[in-house]
Amino acid sequence: MKSINVKVLLKASPIWIFILFELVFFSVAGSYLSLSDKAFMDVDNMLLLLKQSAPIGIIAMGMAIIMINGNIDLSVGATFAIAAIVLLETMSSPMFEGLGDWVIPIAWGAALLVGTLLGAINGLIAWKTGVDAFIVTLGSMLGFRGLVFMFNGENPTSHLNWTLVDFAEAQFLGLHTATWFLLVVTAAIWYLMNRTVHGRNAYAIGNNREAAVNAGIRVGPHMMINFMLIGFLAALSAVVFYSESGSVNPNDGQLYELWIITAVVLGGTKLTGGSGSILSTLGGVIAIQLLRKGLGHIGADTSTVNLVIGSILILVLFLDRQINIKGREELKV
């Protein structure tokens, strides 16, 4: 009896249970190993953790809809870097010198526009050529990154605007600006996927493309919109992050796509598309951030962190398979 309840619970919200487990584990392990005199579950620490989740989290929301739709986008890290350069370049451009802080909305707008455009390029190519999104975005990942290096060589692009820094460091109801962005994006994407025709059609396409086509759903435009959205979100993530940091290295955002896909998969979205939950994706993002922070807290180095996260990902996929098999008791794997 007990074991069945656990299974039901695991099926309903596995990622949140996992997060709970992480919290307990790191608190206990942290105090037991007494490597750090600060408690892990300290409020400030947790708020900081949410803030640090934001850059990846905002993009992960876009990745969730792309994957639910049955595609994948490997170019988000490069898009993130390009948007960051556009942001900082616009702000330091002599063209807008006389505008004072009014340059901020212009720079934001420019970065977001460029991000959306890059996404549109991905979507359009995948739609019109019929080439798999994996290949298309693998190409654009390399291409976009090339653009970043062409722009400024190996040098960082920098510009700090103190108004923006103040804005980014502000806390409202305790949560940082970046966290608010993450929450608002999550809510908006949740609404999009659960309440609008576009969202429901995206699920249908990812779930059974042929059935969707048979029902007259136009697969191409939906895919296009989703790629524009993820491009926009990658730029938004850059805007939020670089408003505070003010300096972008040409290598920034590298491997983001992998962290993001890991977070989305941890959140229960199927690689084959058609199913996945936005709230669980948020859970996946937080779980990964917790792992990174928690392992640091108990003294593990970066390579150990990567090893652990990799193993956990595989374990999660395996468990998911075990739990979701048809006719649980009698049917075998």
């Binding site: 249908a204 059935a211 048979n214």
Partner: peptide, 16 residues
């Protein structure tokens, strides 16, 4: 020709 992860209603009115 159904999207299994969706509800019956969404499948009946799939596409519209």
């Amino acid at each position: 020709s159904l999207a299994e992860e969706l509800s019956v209603a969404e499948n009946v009115y799939l596409g519209e």
